[in-house]
Simulated assay, not measured.
Amino acid sequence: MNITTPTTLSAAQYDGLAELLIDVINAGGSVGFFAPLQKETALEYWRQVKAEMESGLVLFIAEMDGVLVGSVQLAPSPKANGQHRAEVRKLITHTDYRGKGIASRLMQAVEDHALACGKTLLVLDTHLGRPAEAIYQHLGWTRVGVIPDYAAGTDGSLHATVVFYKQLA
């Protein structure tokens, strides 16, 4: 597996990221979109991510045998009093490649990069009761609490999110 932090995205990477997001959303993932996710919507999202990369967001992508199989984002705090912290966003792994350590490797890459950039505190949130919650706990993240009715599901019902943090130093 190869994990990179591209500063620009090729057409193939845009397509791979779009297909990854579509796979995750259409399999029930809760990362801001409703299923079925259309390719143009996914491509537009990744174009927005690319624009954020120009102002500090770091995108990590995982590839296996030429297939884009996972990604995660690190968003440094823009606040003067928050230069020591960053938010981890949208850890996603292709459903055909789950259980192979991709999420763990991506999170380790995030932590290593954050520490190298002087970040000592990371925060994230995830859908309550989903497998990601157990992954974060296994990786040493501390659960802060639950926010009820945080995001809507495709059926209109509201779901809770769990907030985590990890101190790196």
Score class of each variant (00 low, 15 high):
Thr7His: 13
Leu9Trp: 07
Ala11Gln: 13
Asp15Leu: 09
Glu19Met: 10
Glu19Pro: 01
Leu20Gly: 05
Leu21Trp: 07
Asp23Asn: 14
Asp23Lys: 03
Ile25Asp: 07
Ile25Gln: 05
Asn26Met: 00
Gly28Trp: 04
Gly32Pro: 10
Phe33Thr: 08
Ala35Glu: 12
Ala35Ile: 02
Pro36Trp: 04
Leu37Trp: 08
Glu40Val: 09
Glu40Asn: 10
Thr41Arg: 12
Thr41Tyr: 01
Ala42Met: 04
Glu44Arg: 15
Tyr45Ile: 02
Trp46Asp: 03
Arg47Tyr: 00
Gln48Arg: 09
Gln48Lys: 13
Val49Gly: 04
Glu52Trp: 08
Glu52Cys: 15
Glu52Gly: 08
Ser55Leu: 06
Ser55Pro: 01
Gly56Gln: 08
Gly56Ser: 01
Leu57Gln: 08
Val58Lys: 10
Leu59Glu: 05
Phe60Tyr: 12
Ile61Lys: 07
Ala62Lys: 02
Glu63Asp: 11
Met64Tyr: 11
Met64Arg: 09
Gly66Ile: 06
Gly66Lys: 01
Leu68Trp: 02
Val69Cys: 11
Gly70Thr: 08
Ser71Thr: 13
Leu74Glu: 09
Ala75Met: 13
Pro76Gly: 07
Lys79Glu: 12
Lys79Val: 13
Lys79Phe: 15
Asn81Val: 13
Asn81Ser: 11
His84Tyr: 14
His84Thr: 04
Arg85Lys: 14
Ala86Ile: 05
Ala86Thr: 08
Leu91Glu: 06
His94Cys: 04
His94Gln: 03
Arg98Tyr: 04
Arg98Thr: 14
Gly101Ala: 08
Ile102Glu: 06
Ser104Trp: 02
Arg105Glu: 12
Leu106Phe: 08
Leu106Met: 11
